[in-house]
Computed example of a mutant assay.
Amino acid sequence: MRFLHTFQLHDFVDTLVSLFVAFVFGTLIGAERQYRQRSAGLRTNVLVAVGAAAFVDLADHLTGADGSVRVIAYVVSGIGFLGAGVIMKEGMNVRGLNTAATLWASAAVGSCAGADMVAQSAALTLFVLAGNTLLRPLVNAIDRIPLNEKSSEANYEIIVTSDVENVAQSREALSERLEAANYPVRETKVVYRSDDNVEIAAVLVSLAVEPGDLDAIVASLAKLPGVSHATWNVSALE
């Protein structure tokens, strides 16, 4: 067996240390994720860290530092596919970005361990844990600040529901009122909801707006012949 000729105790112990370090630090990161009931919890983060460490350590033993660098590049890109699996979009909300970023960081922790950079791996683990725990109060404080529509950039959309006979007039009136208010339109969409109702949606160019202006525009549009409903909404930029 070739194993009997290639096995070296020193290299084997070095690999064990790398995998053990990745396991311990991956456990610390994963335990925090598991406590918060995230989709990628304890076992996932441990496996990502240990797997990254194993690949980097294998490349280092076979081809040295050059091989490790190439494998690390593939780990960085490859972990993106795993992270994409935990990202979900529900309407205008996107969930799982923080979990995906944590998996990416776990791979970096494992890569450092596989490259025998134990101190760097430990430091990175502390920073990841700090980002997921110590920054939470700051995030909550920022989220509680009321949104100021005048100073924020977002997607603004004005929606007018009209009957079929008055679609052209309603669309023209919508464009005229927005132009008079100096709000440029990025695109206008016309959707036929039924034989009698047509929805006209004007999406504004992302800029700060005066909510009162949009309220006035919507109120005037609602009085037009054939218009059954007019409203506007705002959503955060993706």
Rank of each mutant, 00 (worst) to 15 (best):
P146M: 03
R95L: 03
R136N: 09
A73G: 05
M1E: 10
G91M: 01
A208D: 11
L28N: 06
T27I: 05
W232F: 13
A208H: 12
N166R: 12
L9Y: 07
I217G: 06
R136E: 15
A168D: 02
L28P: 06
G41T: 13
M92N: 00
S206L: 08
V17I: 15
T125K: 02
A59Y: 04
R171Y: 08
L178P: 06
A236D: 13
V190T: 15
T133K: 05
T188A: 01
R2D: 07
E165H: 11
S68D: 00
T231N: 08
S39I: 09
D213Y: 09
L4S: 15
S121V: 03
A219D: 08
S18D: 03
E199P: 03
G96L: 02
V76I: 03
T161N: 09
F81V: 05
G96D: 00
V13L: 14
R171E: 14
R36V: 12
A216V: 13
A123F: 12
R95Q: 02
V24K: 02
D116W: 05
T27W: 02
V118T: 14
V48Q: 03
S68L: 02
A181I: 06
V234A: 07
L19W: 08
L9T: 15
I200P: 03
P211R: 09
A108Q: 01
L204N: 04
V227I: 12
L4N: 07
F55P: 06
P211N: 07
P211D: 04
A119K: 08
E90C: 01
A84N: 00
L42D: 04
S111E: 01
L82Y: 04
L58K: 05
N166S: 14
A201K: 10
R144C: 06
T15F: 07
E157K: 13
N155F: 08
V198S: 01
L207N: 13
D163A: 06
Q37F: 09
E165Q: 11
V21D: 01
L62I: 11
Y183H: 09
Y183R: 12
V191L: 08
T231Q: 08
L62N: 05
G83H: 02
